[in-house]
Design a protein around this nucleic acid. Sequence first.
DNA 1: TTAAATTTTTAGGTTTGTCTAAATTTATTG
DNA 2: CAATAAATTTAGACAAACCTAAAAATTTAA
Lengths: 218, 218
Amino acid sequence: MNFSVSEENYIKSIYHLQVQHQRVNATMLAAMVNTKAASVTDMLKKLQKKKLVDYEPYKSFILTEAGSKLALTIVRKHRLWEYFLVNKLGFAWHEVHDIAEELEHINSVELITRLDNFLDFPSFDPHGDPIPNSRGKMSNLKRSNLLEIPLKKTAIVNYIQDQSVTMLDLLKHYQISIGTKIKVTRRFEFDGSVEIKINKLPDAVLSSQVAKNIYCTV
Amino acid sequence: MNFSVSEENYIKSIYHLQVQHQRVNATMLAAMVNTKAASVTDMLKKLQKKKLVDYEPYKSFILTEAGSKLALTIVRKHRLWEYFLVNKLGFAWHEVHDIAEELEHINSVELITRLDNFLDFPSFDPHGDPIPNSRGKMSNLKRSNLLEIPLKKTAIVNYIQDQSVTMLDLLKHYQISIGTKIKVTRRFEFDGSVEIKINKLPDAVLSSQVAKNIYCTV
DNA sequence: TTAAATTTTTAGGTTTGTCTAAATTTATTG
DNA sequence: CAATAAATTTAGACAAACCTAAAAATTTAA
């Protein structure tokens, strides 16, 4: 079965909302797909008829099994394209979202299979989000920021929340990037700052504002 | 200005029809975009309003300067993506058209600039059609291999597909290199081998495996 | 637990791109 | 050069995806 770009965008958005909240309501979804609640109702009826969502009027809703499967293929395409744009075409990670938003709707299983192979089956996209494999499975590693991870456990940086120029500048200075192995050796209670250790570099201290934005898998 | 996928498809089709015939009529165009003449009329009015076609009711029509420019950007995207699909993802040349048909509508100048650079600024797509550069300029010749070119027409070698040492060795023996003027004088049906004539050299016969890898413009 | 606030749905419209059938214009040809 | 054929346009509809405004259902909270 084939789905329109709009249908795919709704399914993808429901998926992302479900990850955070358990169930999704029309207002949340309308905001996410950048439309009005009335339009969401129309679309929900269509998606229900296609058995992609479990929906009853006036109730919150969730994806069916088929809906989740579809969502994962879209997420997979999006993240693989982001990886391609950054690692092959040399885009910066903050520039690729909108383009991947278009590329994720290109319709060819063979294309994605070959792209995945060409990219050497990456597990995380440039933002650090896990990429579902061809069967829809992906890493379930918990992602925590440097304020949350346990002390003295080696972690691998895989996501930077604040992607402002000033933040990137600071990260460059500390030689922190996606993939960097990092350990929190100490927390200072007074201001929440953390002492970190990176490989053989001298110890450094990051403010809590900075540490809060650096996510890693432990 | 931004254009819908439909508008782009019409413009691209008018362009391709113009290359063959000078002017385009509704019946030809309807067949090419796989729709009905009435729909073509509707779209022509819209494209005229946007100054992409020179059109008067009941008359044949052509692209304006702006229309041609747009057409070339679409052709450029299509052919660059085809090149990518074949030379990076390993698709066969006959498998890529439909996918490129979707990819050509992805909207990002930066993406195409970077893709072009990543592919090392190719001049021909996998079907031998010339790729417009960023200013819309391209070769006005099609590239074919020695199995495809017409008999007894002088052609100029401009690309060797298989660049293995053994192939280069063989080419040296036959005194074939980029720029060589070559003519196919005969084809042997049994094994697909071709008899060639190069300037004042004695006639020679190339196997189909070799001929297939030698590309030229006629 | 009822009134107010919020959320969701319905009703009725719009735009884009398509269609069929009928009318009109242009081209062909006896 | 008139009549037939072919091409093109118009008129009126339809589906998808959206909208606003009003009605209905649900939730909150006084």
